[in-house]
């Protein structure tokens, strides 16, 4: 398939996942403020914005969090910007994505653009965005051929999920020690139910971190997402006729990151957690670059000098 289209699909996957996870992260944040009156609102807002890579601001409070991470299309890490980016990428790949998928993405954008998102209550807005993302990814799975293009979409989704879950864990760590921080995080990524079923009622921070990092069955855990990204890359390499070896830089990076998580001594799970999460985000960027170099390069226009 066209490199440019592959790149668009990859980014549709990333942007949608980003939008969805951002709703989860912001919701966790708001919930924490409600649950625990001892938390300093402004401090929490500052650190959340930092973790999400928002542009630094003087005064951070809840409304700033909502602006920078949800509504403001000019803020690169906002939900609105992510949905806009997904829609723009889909428009470029319009003849490749299925009609139903395009319409799902387009109606989603129409439902949030022009400050429509602000007008909903935050909780409804978050649910709306998550539902729309579920509709889109379900539609993609059911109406797109599971060919190369779909693999790029899944790859983008998985990679972004690794990145976002790492950020979510970082925010949990920042507020850990406070009551219910990890519970909140687990709820945030829809994992609380699965977690309780697996670990039973009495749990520790370590259990929660372990679950989010290492659970092999829960689809939002870091290891699961890494694995899924790896398998997309393997399918892509296979489609390109490669059947042996790991010459693929992106695959190597992902495998290394996964091994580092999986083979860590059980007792050291919480050690250096923030630093490791930052490293994981960096790995995601490197993987994204490696994929770009291998599959998407050349998709930029040449500029010519001379002539008449």
């Amino acid at each position: 398939m066209l490199s440019r289209i592959a790149e668009s699909l990859f980014w549709i996957g990333r942007y949608l996942e980003r939008a969805e996870n951002t709703t989860r992260i912001v919701e966790v944040h708001l919930q924490l403020l409600l649950d625990d009156p001892s938390v300093d609102q402004d401090d929490a807002a500052h650190s959340l914005l930092a973790v999400m890579g928002a542009a630094p601001v003087e005064v951070a409070d809840t409304s700033e969090v909502l602006r920078a991470l949800c509504y403001d299309t000019a803020s690169a890490c906002s939900i609105a910007a992510a949905l806009g980016g997904a829609r723009e990428a889909a428009r470029r790949a319009r003849e490749t994505v299925s009609i139903e998928m395009w319409e799902a993405i387009n109606t989603t954008w129409n439902s949030v653009k022009g400050a429509r998102l602000q007008r909903m209550r935050p909780a409804s807005a978050f649910r709306h965005v998550r539902e729309r993302c579920a509709v889109i990814s379900g539609t993609a799975d059911q109406t797109m051929s599971h060919d190369e293009g779909w693999h790029f979409l899944t790859l983008g989704r998985s990679l972004e999920r690794v990145d976002m879950t790492a950020r979510l864990i970082s925010t949990a760590h920042l507020t850990s020690g406070t009551q219910s921080a990890w519970n909140n995080v687990l709820r945030g990524c829809g994992a609380h139910h699965a977690f309780v079923r697996t670990y039973g009622g009495v749990t520790t921070d370590k259990d929660a971190a372990e679950f989010l990092l290492l659970d092999r069955l829960f689809p939002r855990s870091v290891v699961h997402s890494l694995q899924s990204a790896e398998s997309s890359l393997a399918d892509l390499a296979l489609a390109g006729g490669r059947r042996v070896g790991f010459d693929d830089e992106a695959q190597r990076l992902l495998g290394t990151a996964r091994a580092a998580l999986e083979y860590r001594a059980p007792g050291r799970m919480l050690e250096d957690l923030p630093q490791r999460m930052t490293d994981l985000q960096r790995t995601c960027n490197l993987v994204s670059e490696a994929v770009t170099t291998r599959y998407f390069t050349g998709a930029t226009a040449a500029t010519w000098s001379g002539g008449n």
Binding site: M1, L2, S3, R4, I5, A6, R94, E95, T96, E148, F152, L236, G240, Y295, F296, G298, A299, T300, A301, A302
Partner: peptide, 20 residues
């Protein structure tokens, strides 16, 4: 395929598209 100019490449008098 729907292509843009940057997806095309002329080489040895022939035209190709850049794919993955």
């Amino acid at each position: 395929e729907l292509v843009e100019g940057r997806d095309l490449l002329c080489h040895n008098g022939r035209v190709s598209i850049r794919t993955t």
